[in-house]
Amino acid sequence: MKPVWLIAGNFLREQRWPVVILLGWVVLLSVAAGFSDLRRTPEDVFMLFQQVAVYILVFSLFFGASAIRNELRTRRILAVLSKGISRRQYIAGLLLGIVMAIAIYCLALGMAGAWVLPQVGVPAMRFGLLLLGLGVASLLTACLALFFSIFLHPLLATGATLVIVGSPLLVEVVWNSSWAVLVPVYAILQGFLNLSQGATAFQGWLILLALGETALVWLVSAWLFSWKDVALAVE
């Protein structure tokens, strides 16, 4: 397990600037909210939190899509994979690194939310559950992007992930079908997007479904990655 943690920590270290930038944005948001008259502008507060939630999802998507490619391009992957770690552990390490980045974002957003949102009528407990959902949805998104990036350019992997993650929206709008929850990222995120519309039932099963799908995509990614030629130069 130690190598997985080391790869995760290393990933986080290599991605420290995007992490710091989004964290800075969350801090800025909290400070701005703290100095404003929250009761008079609750819609603005909701919008800011929803915006940051979408940013977290988008950052996770980019982290997932670029994680392997960066290592292949710099050829740093060779020294790592020459050690006693399997491809499955390597993929797990990258995903754990992304989880750590998401956790940092969610923690910062949670702290800001716990301070600001109760003042506009959103209980801290409800916000906490929404954050949990956001974290899991972001993880599934990152995992899908990582999967596609094994055989696609990061830009194409990003596009493919957006299609998969966004297709439930299309299914719901066009066919009004319950199959929309098959990839539950959008369904989970809806809780966040409806922050202003009062309490909605916490759909724990969606989170469990997302976690199950993440595990499945991880296993398939690891298997696929075990066939990948990591020594070939990519530009």
């Binding site: 130690k2 190598p3 080391l6």
Partner: peptide, 28 residues
């Protein structure tokens, strides 16, 4: 591979203090 050491032709390593770097690869 835990019993093997490898140095690649165009060595590419992470940018961190030398001792920490060696410990990172040892940890792997």
């Amino acid at each position: 591979r835990r019993r093997v050491g490898f140095l690649a032709e165009n060595v590419a390593l992470y940018h961190r203090p030398a001792a920490k770097l060696v410990q990172f690869y040892g940890g792997l």
